[in-house]
């Protein structure tokens, strides 16, 4: 296979991975919670998009903001009702709680949506440059993922709520003293995490089939991307996502797709030990 094709596949995949991981990274960086619900949020976003498209025929890109908002509401409510109550507890407690919530959500999805793989088929054709091929739906997915990432970056840099989130991440107590309602910020942050997951799911449903069996796979990708890139920053997730996409693409070609995933995890373990702040992470959020 052509080198350019491998690199191109890696970049397309990497943009999607960045989009998957960005909400997870935000929640971990700001709330100090490992959100085991993240994989299910992504699949829920994908299913909502598929079913809305299937029954109404509305173009999925128009559906995407609505799906994302629905996920925001779900995330906000879950954080407000449950996770905020134990948000300062040790990781064992918060991780177990989100895992419990994930089991409930997963079960609801398998009962109401079944585990059949679903995919929005757009049939947009394929671009080709010489012998490098690029399906247009993947290109669209990559573009959407990058746009969403850029939007989140702008929100975090420029808006009032974005600055409040960053302030809470830096120092919870000082932020509270400055008049920021920390619990409110937590709920909004978790909502944004779910929103990004939902949007990523909507994009995924246009590119690959989604099924509830994939929740663990997506969660694993979020782990790896966060550790590679570093926590709590949008550029970190982007770098981590692109790095993982390229690594998996190259490893998939050289040593087989099954081993590519192992390589990603091994790299993550290696980085955890030698550089737990990630490639461009910020120090001090353990």
């Amino acid at each position: 296979m052509d080198v350019f094709q491998i690199l191109l596949n890696g970049i397309v995949l990497g943009a999607l991975y960045a989009c998957i991981a960005i909400g997870f990274s935000l929640v971990w960086g700001v709330l100090n919670v490992i959100n085991m619900l993240h994989g299910s949020f992504i699949i829920l976003g994908g299913y909502l998009t598929y079913f809305a498209w299937h029954y109404t025929g509305i173009y999925p890109i128009i559906l995407l903001p609505f799906v994302a908002l629905a996920l925001f509401a779900l995330g906000y409510v879950l954080q407000h009702l449950f996770i905020n109550k134990v948000v300062t507890a040790p990781v064992l407690t918060t991780l177990t709680l989100t895992f419990g919530l994930d089991m409930i959500l997963y079960n609801l999805m398998t009962v109401f949506f079944t585990a059949t793989p679903r995919r929005v088929t757009l049939d947009l054709g394929t671009l080709s440059f010489g012998d490098v091929y690029l399906p247009i739906d993947r290109l669209l997915g990559m573009a959407l993922a990058l746009v969403l990432t850029a939007l989140l970056y702008l929100v975090m840099r420029g808006s009032r709520i974005g600055r409040a989130i960053v302030a809470v991440r830096m120092d919870r107590q000082a932020a509270a003293l400055m008049g920021i309602r920390v619990n409110q910020v937590y709920s909004i942050t978790f909502g944004i995490g779910a929103l990004m997951a939902g949007a990523a799911g909507a994009i995924f449903a246009m590119v690959f089939p989604v099924t509830t069996n994939l929740t663990g796979v997506f969660l694993g990708k979020a782990f790896v991307v966060c550790v590679i890139g570093g926590l709590g920053s949008v550029p970190g997730a982007l770098v981590g996502g692109l790095a993982l996409g390229l690594i998996e693409s190259v490893a998939g070609y050289t040593i087989g797709p099954q081993n590519a995933i192992t390589v990603g995890f091994l790299l993550m373990l290696f980085l955890l030990v030698v550089r737990p702040t990630g490639l461009i992470g910020v120090k001090g959020y353990e």
Partner: peptide, 9 residues
């Protein structure tokens, strides 16, 4: 699965 999740919560 959901019931086990509820037990955890």
């Amino acid at each position: 699965r959901a019931i086990l999740g509820i037990i955890i919560v």
